Amino acid sequence: MSLLEYLIGADARTALMERMMRKMGVERQLKVVADHAAVTGRAADRCRSCGHQDECAAWLDETTHAEHPPAYCRNSDLIARLQSIR
């Protein structure tokens, strides 16, 4: 895998994380949480290291409303904490 292929893949996984946060309705909470830049960076890192990007993209495309992310989501705990801020 070339560096360019890796970077494109990493960007795609980061985009999935952003879509997941919007789908779960926590994008605003993520932006205002203490040390939000570090929290967002760690969340993006978890998405980048996930092997379920195809499943995640399909879930995001097919799901109109959900209370919880899919079981394989590596940011489930973060999303639950952000949902409790509402």
Rank of each mutant, 00 (worst) to 15 (best):
residue 1 M to S: 07
residue 2 S to L: 03
residue 2 S to T: 10
residue 2 S to V: 02
residue 4 L to R: 13
residue 6 Y to A: 06
residue 6 Y to I: 09
residue 7 L to E: 10
residue 8 I to T: 15
residue 10 A to I: 08
residue 11 D to T: 03
residue 12 A to Q: 15
residue 13 R to Y: 00
residue 15 A to E: 12
residue 16 L to T: 04
residue 17 M to G: 03
residue 18 E to S: 07
residue 20 M to L: 14
residue 21 M to T: 11
residue 21 M to G: 05
residue 21 M to Q: 06
residue 22 R to D: 01
residue 25 G to Y: 00
residue 25 G to D: 08
residue 25 G to Q: 01
residue 26 V to L: 06
residue 27 E to H: 06
residue 28 R to Y: 12
residue 28 R to G: 06
residue 29 Q to D: 02
residue 29 Q to V: 02
residue 29 Q to G: 01
residue 31 K to T: 03
residue 31 K to H: 05
residue 32 V to L: 01
residue 35 D to N: 14
residue 36 H to M: 02
residue 37 A to F: 14
residue 40 T to K: 06
residue 41 G to Q: 06
residue 41 G to V: 01
residue 43 A to M: 09
residue 43 A to P: 09
residue 44 A to N: 07
residue 45 D to V: 00
residue 47 C to M: 15
residue 47 C to I: 02
residue 49 S to A: 09
residue 50 C to H: 02
residue 51 G to I: 04
residue 51 G to W: 07
residue 53 Q to M: 13
residue 53 Q to C: 12
residue 57 A to W: 00
residue 58 A to G: 03
residue 59 W to Q: 03
residue 59 W to V: 05
residue 60 L to N: 06
residue 64 T to A: 10
residue 68 H to A: 15
residue 68 H to E: 15
residue 69 P to R: 06
residue 70 P to R: 13
residue 70 P to G: 14
residue 72 Y to R: 10
residue 72 Y to L: 08
residue 73 C to N: 09
residue 74 R to W: 05
residue 76 S to W: 02
residue 76 S to P: 00
residue 77 D to F: 08
residue 78 L to I: 11
residue 78 L to A: 11
residue 78 L to G: 08
residue 79 I to M: 04
residue 79 I to P: 01
residue 80 A to N: 12
residue 82 L to K: 04
residue 83 Q to I: 05
residue 83 Q to N: 10
residue 83 Q to C: 11
residue 85 I to T: 09
residue 86 R to K: 13
